[in-house]
Design a protein around this nucleic acid. Structure first.
Length: 867
DNA sequence: GTTCTCACG
DNA sequence: ACGTACGTGAGAACA
């Protein structure tokens, strides 16, 4: 017999909300109710394997019970704010499970459940009701069971008729009579005064129903009789209120509630947004379909050579493992096959300008080949980059996800084949049949994927961005990675020694001050010292305790001398662990470090740098800056040439906003922060003080970040009111900026996305959120992304041009690093002037804006001196 | 694996 | 009344 599972959505949602601690995602959205509900739902689906399913919710409008009895649920607290914001998202989650929700005006979830269970029962289905509310026990009958949450979110108790009678000594139908007599505090159902569970059970067992009790009050005695006779109306009303309506006027087409597979993509997206990592992993495991392993032909490179004579475009998917390309798959319209790699020289047959590969996230392959001395001139499409352009906010662009999303196709899960973490397999241990299946299945779909993505790219007018910037950039980044940045080990060692000596002394001082030794790196132990031992005031809290960050420590400085030493210790430790100890082991035999540049990570279009991150080498603090002395040229007697865009983001803002004053400032090559100070503080430029300029600079930053008075006041440590005045003054003086910001937010609200100068796009779903925080966040993203993203567009164009120019002129000097508004070229001593000139010319003229682009060039024996 | 802190533009 | 400045990555501690 088929089973219909019907869930009381409100009840379980509340249960989850109260049972779990206050969870939050990084955007500040509370998630505990959604998380708990999802856990319960997954468990139920797994255990019950229903054939039909529905979730019922209350509807806000007053129900017939309120009309009957105005005080109904009168004592009920209104839903907490933290739960309200979860309701709609929870419904989205349920929806992503492909489960229908039912809500009906004027009825509670209970009534819907009563009605649906009745209909399902009449149609010969078994029914299981899941709720946290014992009232539902009245619905139990032959074929209808009720599951009630016991405690927490995982423990439940199942009731059939027998179980109800055992537990409550009355039948399910009599459960209503029971409640009519007892009343119900939580629903504010009055019942009969002074009759509790014990008496009620006794009466109902004896008389069978409230009506029968009322007709036979003469058989009762004393207080009980008195109470009942004086409250007959109450008893009847209470029973009515407690009775679940089983004839709600709805049409139920059972077939609509048949269990379907959940919408994997949608659910994973939602869970990612909610940051339910463990649930995502469960889903992924769960989807290890009972997929048939196909057999594919295994060929060799000789065969590939023949193939390339016939085809000018071939799909291609490599497996890189243990630092080597172990195997590859090829696919055309006509054939798909696997090739094992035993000689890198074979790849040279791909070195052909006339011929194109279709691949997914191909840079690593090119990098690997380059380390083996092989450079391929072939054209290529990269479906990962294309997918990134279509939506740069995805958390990753794994081929499996992309194929699922755009082609609704499944391929095997790579982690199952290669293993992960501790159980990661070596190439020889991999099941070849599974591997071949994976590589070939993937390659076989790339062409279709590329066509589909390309049609979207064209639709969104990002073809030029793709072809002129992002795809050519792959080779540039490859070259930067492979070439690397040379470090001077001795400089690092000397600095390390200096740091050790300083920290030794500081550690002693801190231990002396404490009177005991502890781990200063531990925020927990440090806060014990600061806030318990020294009794310093705790300034702010973190999720887990008191904060000990820089801002707090600076505030604590006046209280105790040791705080200053803690700050210094922190700075020194950071320098040592991240930039010295972190770098030495990753230097190669030539004392170079090779970062990996990520092209499909940052949602604004920037590139990022990892292992090591060369984009966050200390610069602001003088001591930390000395690390840069270790970054030197690879050339004997060579130079580091640095070229950075001056105020690129504000120039982009001037261009986008067409603000007259801002444009004028840049045309006249003014000190931009000074000018802003003069405007905001409404005084002559020569009267602007250093402090005013500093504040104006913060205002300019704020404008770029998507300003708020709160953020500015925090940064400048001024009142909200004062911050607001600055902002108002700014917008009053820079009307073009104001108009631009308003219009970009409006555009985002209406279209759901914003764009950059090169038409790069970022979606901002948060902008229409009902949650204030989320919406504000969306608005700031809408303001910031066109600015940050356009700056990224510009420097990316420059990178491609600089790289190509260095190459075209056969210069030895190499572009080795980009830091968002700055390019670094490792320069041969005989090419210094050429490189400086080339950088300045290309970068300043790479695009024509309404204001000039200005590039400052620095040059030195090391990165520190290149300023 | 998550949290805190801090490095950069 | 609400409560965050935008975009990244990495090391250490802790659970």
């Amino acid at each position: 017999m088929s089973k219909f599972l019907i869930i009381d959505g409100n009840s379980l949602m509340y249960r989850a909300y109260f049972a779990l601690p206050d969870l939050m995602n990084s955007e500040g959205l509370h998630t505990n109710a959604i998380y708990g509900f999802s856990m319960m739902l997954i468990k139920l689906l797994d255990e019950e394997k229903p054939d039909y399913i529905a979730v019922a919710f209350d509807k806000k409008a007053p129900t017939f019970r309120h009309k009957e009895y105005s005080a109904y649920k009168g004592t009920r607290q209104s839903m907490p704010e933290e739960l309200i914001e979860q309701v709609d998202i929870l419904k989205d989650v349920i929806n992503a499970f492909n489960i229908k929700t039912i809500e009906i005006e004027g009825f509670e979830a209970d009534d819907i459940i009563g009605t649906v269970s009745k209909i399902a029962s009449e149609n010969g289905l078994k029914v299981l009701i899941v709720t946290g509310d014992r009232d539902a026990l009245q619905l139990v009958s032959d074929g209808v069971k009720v599951k009630i949450c016991k405690k927490g979110i995982t423990q439940m108790e199942e009731y059939d008729e027998k179980a109800v009678i055992e537990r409550y000594e009355v039948t399910p139908r009599q459960f209503i009579d029971l409640k009519g007599l007892m009343g119900d505090k939580s629903d504010n159902i009055p019942g009969v005064p002074n009759i509790g569970e014990k008496t009620a059970i006794k009466l109902i067992k004896e008389f069978g129903s409230i009506e029968n009790v009322l007709m036979n009050t003469d058989k009762l005695k004393g207080k009980i009789r008195e109470n009942i006779e004086n409250n007959t109306e109450m008893a009847v009303l209470s029973k009515k209120l407690a009775t679940i309506e089983r004839n709600v006027p709805i049409e139920i087409d059972l077939s609509e509630y048949q269990m379907k597979d959940y919408d994997r993509e949608k659910l994973i997206d939602l869970f990612e947004k909610l940051e339910f990592t463990s649930l995502i992993n469960d889903l992924k495991k769960d989807a290890d379909d009972i997929r048939e392993v196909k057999e594919w032909p295994v060929r060799d490179f000789k065969y590939v050579r023949e193939l390339l004579k016939r085809e000018d475009t071939v799909s291609f998917y490599p497996l890189i493992l243990e630092g080597e390309v172990k195997a590859v798959s090829f696919a055309t319209d006509d054939e798909i096959f696997f090739v094992e790699v035993d000689d890198y020289e074979e790849f040279k047959l791909l070195d052909n300008e006339k011929f194109a590969l279709i691949c997914h996230d191909i840079k690593d392959f090119f990098v690997n080949l380059s380390y083996h001395g092989i450079e391929l001139k072939c054209k290529f499409y990269d479906t990962a980059i294309m997918t990134y352009l279509l939506n740069p906010s995805e958390s990753n662009y794994d081929i499996g996800r992309v194929l699922k999303k755009y082609l609704k196709e499944d391929i095997p899960n790579i982690e199952d084949i290669l293993g992960k973490g501790k159980s990661k397999k070596s190439y020889d241990d991999i099941d070849k049949k599974l591997l071949i299946d994976y590589l070939c299945a993937t390659a076989s779909k790339l062409s279709k994927l590329k066509d589909k993505l390309m049609s979207f790219i064209k639709e969104m007018e990002m073809e030029e961005l793709l072809n002129n910037v992002e795809l050519p950039l792959v080779e540039v980044l490859k070259s930067m990675e492979v070439y690397g940045f040379t470090l001077d080990k001795d400089v690092l060692k000397d600095l390390s020694k200096e740091i050790d000596e300083k920290t030794d002394k500081i550690i002693k001082d801190i231990y002396d001050a404490a009177g005991y030794e502890f781990n200063i790196n531990s925020t927990k132990q440090l806060s014990e010292f600061l806030f318990d031992k020294l009794n310093l005031p705790a300034i702010k809290k973190t999720k887990t305790g008191y904060s000990t960050d820089m801002e707090v420590l600076v505030e604590l400085m006046p209280y105790n001398e040791i705080v200053g030493e803690i700050i210094e210790y922190r700075q020194l430790m950071k320098l040592k662990s991240t930039y010295i100890d972190g770098f030495i082991p990753i230097m190669d035999k030539d004392d170079k470090v090779h970062s990996t540049f990520k092209q499909i990570v940052a949602a604004t279009g920037r590139i990022s740098s990892t292992e090591p991150n060369l984009q966050n080498i200390p610069a602001r603090d003088e001591f930390g800056r000395r690390i840069r002395k270790a970054f030197i040229s690879s050339f004997q007697g060579g130079y580091i040439v640095s070229a950075d865009y001056s105020q690129i983001e504000l120039r982009v803002l001037a261009h986008l906003s067409e603000d007259e004053k801002l444009i004028e400032s840049f045309l006249n090559n003014e000190d931009i922060h000074l000018r802003t100070a003069s405007e905001v503080f409404k005084i002559a430029p020569e009267k602007v003080t250093g402090e005013m300029r500093r504040r104006a600079k913060a205002v300019n930053f704020g404008i770029v970040y998507g300003i708020s008075d709160y953020g500015l006041s925090r940064d400048l440590k001024i009142s909200r009111k004062e911050a607001k005045e600055y902002i108002d003054n700014y917008f009053d003086r820079y009307k073009g900026v104001k108009n631009y910001i308003d219009s970009v937010v409006k555009f985002a609200r209406e279209n759901g996305y914003v764009t950059t100068i090169l038409n790069r796009r970022r979606y901002i779903p948060e902008i229409n959120s009902k949650n204030y925080n989320q919406r504000s966040f969306g608005e700031r993203m809408a303001m910031n992304t066109p600015i940050q993203g356009s700056a990224a567009d510009i420097i990316k164009m420059s990178m491609v041009k600089v790289y190509n120019e260095l190459k075209a002129r056969s210069l030895k000097s190499k572009l080795i690093l980009q830091i968002h508004d700055e390019l670094i070229v490792d320069t041969s001593p005989d090419e210094v002037e050429i490189v400086k000139d080339l950088l300045k010319t290309i970068m300043e003229n790479v695009i024509k804006l309404r204001v000039p682009l200005v590039v400052d060039i620095g040059c030195g024996k090391n990165w520190y001196d290149a300023k």
